[in-house]
Simulated assay, not measured.
Amino acid sequence: MTPSPVSYKRHRFPPQIISHAVWLYFRFPFSLRLVEEMLLERGIVLSYETIRRWAMKFGLDYASRLKRKKPGRLDVWHLDEVVVSIHGEKRYLWRAVDQDGYILDEIVQVRRHAKAAQRLLKRLLHKQGCRPRRMVTDKLGSYAAARREIMPGVEHRSHKGLNNRAENSHVPLRKRERAMQGFRSWRGLQRFVDVFSALRNLFVPPQPSRHSAIAIHLHRLRAIAEWRSVTLPA
């Protein structure tokens, strides 16, 4: 079923400006103030707080309408977790990517125990609709315990050297974290990664080093076309 168009009722600025501001903020390592300045250069006068409200209101709506990559039974899931600190409190951002580096899911959790790993696997199965051919993790024992409970028939390879794909997937978010000088809340972090990763999945081609410049250019043009079809009224 095709979702209804995004509603921009009671907004003074046109949808083109709103969607462009949200795209700039989530797609590039820009702070809200830098996005404000970039729009000002184009003659669009608004505050960074307006951009923040747009990002909160429309970001998840946009992301939910973007097409997801179709899962397959031959997929390989790479799982890893990274520590994030907010106001001195540490939690873990659990992430799963497939063999092409496509981000399948992310979830902020307090612990690194088996229940946390089980929660990630259950979310993945719900979103993907099928089990992978193989699961690759580092040597954290929580993954093995969760796999035995949730996906006992799936092959599991546990080796730090095999999980570079998942570990490298943390790099873009780390760069963004530095540009933003950290996140402000855990709920805000979860909301941000849901949108940030959806846009990255759309605009960054799988294994870009193996593509020609023309292929990457065409991929980006198709991504821009999909973004506009999702965010702008027909």
Rank of each mutant, 00 (worst) to 15 (best):
H78E: 03
D80V: 00
D80T: 00
E81M: 00
V82G: 14
S85H: 07
I86F: 03
H87K: 05
H87W: 00
H87V: 00
K90Y: 05
K90E: 15
R91G: 01
R91L: 04
R91E: 02
L93T: 00
L93C: 07
L93K: 12
L93H: 09
A96I: 05
V97A: 10
D98R: 05
G101K: 03
Y102W: 07
L104N: 04
L104V: 02
D105P: 03
E106Y: 00
V108L: 11
V108Y: 06
Q109N: 08
V110C: 10
R111G: 09
R111F: 03
R111P: 09
R112T: 05
R112W: 06
A114I: 06
K115C: 10
K115N: 15
A117G: 14
R119F: 08
L120D: 07
L121Y: 11
L121K: 10
R123P: 04
L124T: 03
L125G: 08
H126N: 14
K127Q: 14
K127D: 14
Q128P: 04
P132V: 01
P132F: 09
M135Q: 11
V136P: 09
V136Q: 12
K139R: 15
K139D: 12
K139Y: 08
S142Y: 04
S142Q: 10
A144P: 01
A145L: 10
A145M: 12
R147C: 09
R148N: 00
R148P: 07
E149Y: 15
E149I: 06
P152R: 04
G153A: 07
G153P: 05
V154G: 13
E155V: 08
E155A: 14
R157H: 11
S158R: 09
L162R: 15
L162M: 13
N163M: 08
N163A: 05
N164L: 08
R165F: 15
A166K: 02
A166H: 01
A166M: 06
E167T: 05
N168D: 10
S169P: 12
S169C: 03
V171M: 13
V171G: 15
V171K: 15
V171S: 12
P172V: 02
P172K: 02
L173D: 10
K175E: 13
R176F: 04
E177V: 06
R178Y: 02
R178L: 04
M180F: 01
Q181S: 09
Q181D: 06
